[in-house]
Computed example of a mutant assay.
Amino acid sequence: MLIILPLLTALSSMPAMASSYSSSERRTLQSAISSALHSAEINRYYQQCREQPTEGEIAVIQTDKEQSRMLAMLQSKVHTQDLNLLLAADNKLTNQVKHGINTPTDCQDTKALQTLIDNYEVALFSLDIAMPLEQQLISKASSAKTQANAQQQEVNKTIADSHAIALVTVVSKQQLNAVQQANYLHPDYESNYVFKVMYGWQGHISHYLGMHISVADNEINTIPKQWLIFLDKNGHFIKAISADKAITYLNVLSDAQWRYDVYGNLHRN
């Protein structure tokens, strides 16, 4: 007796795409996934339960007779016949549909086979009346590339919009004497911590400046100690990123254009 294995056991490890769908689109996607999975189960049954030909005869393999219609509807409704792409479009939904399909337990389980075929017809009907997706499905690789391009554009725009960019460290305000505090900090600046500028790009800024956030003494150990900061021409913060998360920006900026030495003197590279 031949036991029918569950369909596509590897589906649980497939990557989900970061996509969102409307309610009607999710119904369309569910119908498409259900149709594809039912067709695959039917083909699997016929493949594993085919009769062995007698000597001299040619093996005849029965397949899902509705497969061509199913693929045509997939093209019409979800704009692809790529089953791997379809099943990866929503990992959670695919697994929900997969677990709801009852498959024959063996090659003699014709009742379960008929139920599988009947449910397949229901899935095809549901797909036939479903509204097409507004946008094409895209692969995880394409989605990742699009996201990476958008992030790179954001990096380039932030750099282009900045008058000055600097790598800074967080230090105690007590490192500055009264004259320095008066020169570098706003009179209303109350935090006990400031930024000490190490080096930077484009326009230069003063050796010390107030932070973009207020940090209490009991919070100092919870924040990053180095930041990459972006300022406009008026010295206002455009963005501040902890140094450990700024590698993409630093790669674009490359070598620093100016720096402060240990004595606080400004040098242009």
Results as ranks from 00 to 15, higher is better:
residue 266 L to V: 08
residue 225 K to S: 13
residue 133 L to H: 04
residue 94 T to Q: 00
residue 182 A to C: 08
residue 194 V to S: 02
residue 132 P to W: 06
residue 53 P to E: 06
residue 234 N to R: 10
residue 177 N to E: 05
residue 259 R to I: 04
residue 91 N to V: 11
residue 253 L to V: 07
residue 206 S to T: 14
residue 177 N to V: 01
residue 180 Q to N: 07
residue 196 K to F: 00
residue 35 S to Y: 10
residue 55 E to C: 11
residue 18 A to W: 08
residue 76 S to T: 12
residue 75 Q to L: 08
residue 146 T to A: 13
residue 80 T to V: 07
residue 209 L to V: 03
residue 135 Q to A: 02
residue 172 S to D: 01
residue 243 A to P: 06
residue 179 V to P: 08
residue 183 N to E: 06
residue 108 Q to Y: 14
residue 33 I to H: 11
residue 68 S to P: 06
residue 17 M to Q: 15
residue 242 S to K: 05
residue 152 Q to L: 13
residue 39 S to T: 04
residue 170 V to P: 01
residue 25 E to P: 02
residue 185 L to K: 03
residue 131 M to G: 09
residue 200 G to A: 08
residue 35 S to K: 11
residue 111 K to I: 04
residue 15 P to Q: 11
residue 25 E to Q: 04
residue 147 Q to K: 15
residue 265 N to I: 03
residue 142 S to M: 14
residue 73 M to D: 05
residue 184 Y to A: 09
residue 262 V to S: 15
residue 196 K to V: 04
residue 241 I to N: 05
residue 85 L to Y: 01
residue 98 K to Q: 00
residue 19 S to V: 12
residue 33 I to N: 10
residue 208 Y to K: 12
residue 234 N to W: 10
residue 130 A to K: 01
residue 240 A to R: 09
residue 36 A to W: 00
residue 138 I to W: 06
residue 217 D to L: 09
residue 92 K to P: 04
residue 152 Q to F: 13
residue 101 I to Y: 01
residue 181 Q to T: 00
residue 151 Q to S: 12
residue 188 D to K: 11
residue 30 Q to L: 03
residue 161 D to L: 07
residue 202 Q to S: 14
residue 105 T to Y: 14
residue 18 A to Y: 10
residue 162 S to N: 07
residue 148 A to R: 13
residue 27 R to T: 05
residue 262 V to Y: 15
residue 37 L to Q: 03
residue 245 K to P: 13
residue 260 Y to S: 08
residue 248 T to F: 01
residue 212 H to G: 04
residue 187 P to H: 10
residue 220 I to E: 00
residue 225 K to G: 11
residue 28 T to P: 08
residue 70 M to V: 09
residue 218 N to Q: 14
residue 79 H to K: 02
residue 218 N to L: 08
residue 198 M to H: 13
residue 31 S to D: 00
residue 158 T to A: 13
residue 27 R to C: 08
residue 239 K to P: 12
residue 174 Q to K: 15
residue 182 A to Q: 15
residue 103 T to Y: 02
residue 257 Q to Y: 02
residue 72 A to Y: 03
residue 247 I to Y: 14
residue 60 V to K: 12
residue 127 L to D: 01
residue 85 L to P: 00
residue 149 N to V: 02
residue 192 N to M: 09
residue 251 N to Q: 15
residue 144 A to M: 14
residue 247 I to H: 14
residue 7 L to W: 06
residue 234 N to C: 10
residue 262 V to I: 14
residue 167 L to I: 11
residue 223 I to R: 15
residue 134 E to P: 07
residue 229 I to N: 07
residue 234 N to P: 07
residue 57 E to P: 09
residue 81 Q to R: 07
residue 14 M to V: 02
residue 199 Y to T: 13
residue 79 H to G: 04
residue 40 A to M: 05
residue 8 L to I: 00
residue 155 V to W: 03
residue 68 S to T: 07
residue 19 S to L: 14
residue 262 V to W: 14
residue 113 L to E: 03
residue 20 S to W: 05
residue 36 A to T: 01
residue 137 L to M: 00
